[in-house]
Computed example of a mutant assay.
Amino acid sequence: MSKRKKASPKKSSNFLTYFVWSLAFIVMLLGAFVAGYYVGHDGAKEDALKKEQSKEKIKQSMIKKLEQESAKRKSLKDEQSVSERLKEVLKKEPLPPEPSKEPNEDNLTSSLSIKEVVAQYEDASHEVEEAVLPKAIERKVVKSTKRPKLAIIIDDISVKSHVNAVKSLHLPITMSFLPPSKARPSSAILASQESFYMVHLPMEAQNFKAEEPLTLRVDDSSEKIVQRVEEIKKLFPKVKYLNNHTGSKFTANEVAMDKLILALKKSNITFVDSRTTGDSKAQKVLKKYSLEYIGRDIFLDHKMDKAYVLSQIKRAIEVAKKHGSAVAIGHPHPNTIAALNESKKLFADVDLVLVNKL
């Protein structure tokens, strides 16, 4: 019987070695694959995160730009809104078929177009004789811990668009209304809707072609002046302050001013001197009767250029700081209203007040 051959230990050992190495190789391949997967995945996640962060930065940057643009558009829109409202001042209104003799709330438009009315008052120079501004009021420098006060009066208010333009500023500005006339029949009605206002009373000028009806003249009697003041009081029952419209001749006449101040005192109305002439006798007459003198310091719109009006607003603020108070006068024209709107930050240095709060 033949003998069975025994398996070679050497061959068996080689087989096991190959097998182990093969398994190790496979494990290494799998490990490398898994490691590569996770490394690649993490790298991809990091790349994706970076992309997301980059997108977010771009998004935030765009949002910021949009917000800035939106703010600019809003600011521009606000300015345009003011401009649009101011255009009403120059907008031609149709003539009413039959103007009512007695103005009422349904008849708030002028029998003339607003454009025709405004054309008579192109700038503040119509107030001052020969367009020469009188010198500033001589006053002592006031050193006080109180904040300086500035009162801004807008003269010639006579139609609804003037009122709307001033109110659009949302500032404490005193409106001074011209008395009713054929050109502006509803000025008193418009004033009655305000809690506080002044009257801009026409007085004789040295030379002014577009004189208002019922203008007070230097040769008017005391009785006639008293009668006119009483008429004003009936038209404007709440009036406490009154300033002169033109009046370079009237206010320079001491006798005429004496008659007017006495009539105003009788009706408990304070006179505010528009100072359309350097020869005004208002201060002298008021002192005679121990009455307070209030006079204009600055005309804002002697020239109808917005840059000029802005410079005059700054001057008015400086006068208020120097003397403790100041009075500035302007008119309801687009450049004046626009300049006031742009000066709101400047008014932070003073207390902008109505004239009765000086």
Rank of each mutant, 00 (worst) to 15 (best):
A320Q: 12
A320S: 12
A320P: 06
A320M: 11
K321T: 11
K321P: 07
K322R: 15
K322D: 15
K322H: 15
K322F: 15
H323V: 14
H323T: 13
H323F: 11
G324F: 04
G324W: 07
G324L: 14
G324V: 12
G324K: 09
G324E: 13
G324P: 07
S325R: 13
S325L: 15
S325P: 02
S325M: 14
S325K: 15
A326W: 01
A326F: 02
V327G: 07
V327F: 05
V327H: 00
V327Q: 01
V327A: 10
V327P: 03
A328S: 08
I329D: 08
I329N: 05
G330P: 03
G330D: 06
G330V: 09
G330T: 09
G330F: 03
H331T: 07
H331C: 05
H331M: 08
H331V: 02
P332G: 05
P332I: 06
H333A: 14
P334R: 14
P334N: 11
N335S: 03
N335D: 04
N335M: 00
N335C: 03
N335I: 00
T336P: 02
T336Q: 02
T336W: 01
T336L: 04
I337W: 08
A338D: 05
A338G: 01
A338L: 04
A339D: 05
A339N: 02
A339I: 04
A339Q: 03
L340V: 10
N341F: 00
N341K: 00
N341C: 01
E342Q: 15
E342G: 09
S343A: 15
S343Q: 09
S343E: 09
K344N: 06
K345A: 14
K345E: 14
K345G: 10
K345D: 14
K345R: 12
L346V: 03
L346Y: 02
L346I: 04
F347R: 00
F347H: 04
F347I: 08
F347T: 08
F347V: 06
F347Y: 09
F347C: 03
A348M: 13
A348P: 05
D349A: 08
D349L: 07
D349M: 06
D349P: 04
V350I: 14
V350Q: 12
V350Y: 06
V350N: 09
V350R: 08
V350G: 11
V350T: 11
